[in-house]
């Protein structure tokens, strides 16, 4: 077994408890240590780190959109320096296999907060980006979970979120379009949750088309 991040082999002491443990490990201890999980207290809704019950971002969205289309966001890691580096290797260098490093924690988070059988919607990617990268990072994450995927959404608008300010993101047009009717319950899967505008744009469309409960599961909350 090799660590998916540092490519070193993972050594494991053989004890009675590990002898019959055939689970595949994908992360070594030293790499795991550097990934920082989100700790309490956080916003109830979007897991932003805050002392208040509902963070200012979520309050703002409620005012801005009248009703927040997103019911809940679950994130796992914080966006520390190490995570930034991993993300850039994953997304900009196109290192697909790194996704397996987060497999365990992503699956755990899913099972802790959601029930099986709900459709997953990976945020679609613009065609030019998928051409460069060769994969959609949100879909790579969604495939870790072994749940049915919903593929009825396409991206029409061009984006590069990370280069935009908050206000530019808010005032942008909805970049998505629905081409199929969504199921009742949907979980949106994405890699990063920053202001939540991307996820909320998608959620807005889903709700309008008749979805009842739209949550999101994102790897990183920054």
């Amino acid at each position: 077994m090799h660590c998916k991040i540092c490519l070193q082999s993972i050594e494991k002491d053989t004890t009675w408890s590990t002898l019959f443990d055939f689970r595949e490990r994908t992360l070594c201890l030293s790499c795991d240590e550097q990934l920082e999980k989100i700790r309490e207290p956080t916003c109830k809704k979007c897991m932003k780190r805050t002392e208040e019950k509902l963070c200012s971002d979520c309050m703002f969205w409620e005012q801005h959109l009248g009703e927040d289309p997103l019911d809940r966001n679950i994130s796992i890691y914080t966006y520390n320096e190490y995570m930034k580096e991993m993300m850039s290797r994953f997304k900009y260098r196109g290192d697909y296999e790194i996704v397996y490093a987060w497999k365990d924690s992503f699956q755990q988070a899913f099972h802790a907060h959601f029930s099986k059988g709900i459709h997953l919607l990976p945020i679609p990617l613009a065609e030019s980006r998928i051409f460069d990268r060769g994969f959609n990072q949100a879909e790579a994450l969604a495939r870790l979970l072994d749940q049915p995927l919903f593929a009825g959404m396409i991206r029409t608008g061009q984006e590069k979120q990370s280069k935009r300010t908050k206000w530019e993101r808010l005032s942008a047009k909805n970049p998505f379009e629905l081409i199929e009717t969504p199921p009742e319950n949907v979980i949106i899967i994405d890699d990063l949750f920053t202001t939540g505008s991307t996820v909320r744009f998608a959620a807005q469309l889903l709700k309008k088309a008749g979805a009842k409960c739209v949550s999101s599961l994102t790897l990183v909350r920054s």
């Binding site: 697909y96 679609p124 990617l125 065609e127 998928i130 994969f135 959609n136 879909e139 593929a151």
Partner: peptide, 10 residues
Amino acid sequence: IPTETNQPIP
């Protein structure tokens, strides 16, 4: 990298 995906790679 799997190529059989939701979103076909052009």
